[in-house]
Simulated assay, not measured.
Amino acid sequence: MYKPHPSQRLTDLFRAKPYQGARPQDAEFVFMGLDANYDADIERGRAFDSVLEYHADGVAFWQRHGVHHPFLLPGYRGAGQPYHQNFAKVGLRSEDARRVSFVELLNVPTIGGHDLAVEDLDPQHLDELNALILGGARRNVFLSDKVAKLMRRSGRFGWLRKPIANQVLPVLHKVGATTVYQHLHFSNYGKFQGRMTIEAAAIAALAAAKPEGGPEAR
């Protein structure tokens, strides 16, 4: 069971836009996580206004500030920062803002540590994520092993293979022009750093590749 975040302002933003960055349906790179977890007292921190700005329009935020997330702005220290520091190593720039989306299986913000259960998840939200993938548009979707396991347990992603161990960006599914990859969660560190560096380079190469039919193909 999870603990919902006490901030009504943050919760309202998630209800309006249950994603971060670009709208998932418009993005070429979709990074799927378990839940968006924040410090319980984030409203009292000086980063909160930036967090609200980001959730209101993540694309404009990246283009305006030059970083993809408010946790990377000077002065922020707290939960979530290592994840976004590692993601930044992929090397995507503000010009890529419209190509990148972060979306979670749980569509409300949370606090504290917890293990999500299938019963915590909104079936309609899961069905929307399933439709996003099975639509087959030109898109790369990235799942960590924990995300993939919970998706399988939900029973709503029958096409999804079991997680694959000890490979760099193994492919879990392909449909149309959509490819689903397994990746190491960006909050990993220590002994996983070498593989994360290799995966970051592989994601960067995907972002730099020219699509079939020219740069405007979609």
Rank of each mutant, 00 (worst) to 15 (best):
P170R: 11
Q81F: 02
D127E: 12
P170H: 09
R44Y: 09
F192S: 00
R44N: 14
V67D: 06
R195W: 14
S101C: 13
L121Y: 01
L13T: 13
Y76T: 06
S187H: 05
A207T: 15
F186M: 03
D122A: 09
M32G: 03
M32E: 04
P70C: 06
D26A: 13
K3P: 02
T197M: 14
G158I: 05
D57W: 09
D49T: 11
G58L: 01
G112V: 08
M1G: 06
K3H: 10
N166G: 13
Y189Q: 04
P6Y: 12
V51Q: 10
F87L: 10
Q8C: 09
L92F: 11
G155H: 07
T11I: 06
P6N: 08
L184N: 00
R139K: 11
A22S: 13
I203Q: 00
D41Q: 14
F61A: 08
A205F: 02
N107Y: 12
A117M: 11
V141N: 08
P24H: 06
H183D: 02
L126S: 05
T11V: 13
D35W: 03
R195C: 06
E216M: 06
V180L: 01
G214S: 03
A201T: 10
S144T: 11
V180A: 02
V51H: 07
H68Y: 10
Y76M: 05
R23F: 07
L160C: 08
S154L: 01
A22F: 04
G66M: 11
D39H: 10
S7K: 04
G158S: 00
D120P: 09
L105Y: 13
F48Y: 15
L132R: 08
L184Q: 00
G112D: 11
A60P: 00
G214W: 05
Q85E: 14
L184D: 00
V59P: 00
G75H: 13
R23W: 08
R46L: 12
L184M: 12
V141C: 02
P18G: 09
L172A: 08
Q124Y: 03
G190M: 00
A177S: 13
M1C: 04
W159L: 01
R93T: 15
L184S: 02
R64C: 09
L106M: 11
A47Q: 10
A79Y: 05
T179K: 13
P74S: 05
A137K: 12
H125E: 15
A165C: 11
V147S: 12
F71Y: 10
H55E: 15
V180Y: 03
Q193H: 09
R9C: 14
Y83G: 00
A117P: 02
A177F: 10
A148Y: 04
Y19K: 08
A201I: 11
I164P: 08
H5L: 03
H5E: 09
N188V: 13
L143W: 09
N107D: 15
G113C: 03
N130K: 12
P70F: 12
M196Y: 01
N86P: 01
V147N: 11
K89Y: 01
S101K: 04
A207Q: 03
A60M: 00
P6L: 15
L34C: 04
L106T: 12
E199D: 03
D122E: 15
D120M: 09
N188H: 07
D39P: 11
I42R: 02
Q182P: 13
E212F: 10
H183E: 03
M196N: 00
F29P: 02
Q182H: 11
R77I: 15
V171C: 04
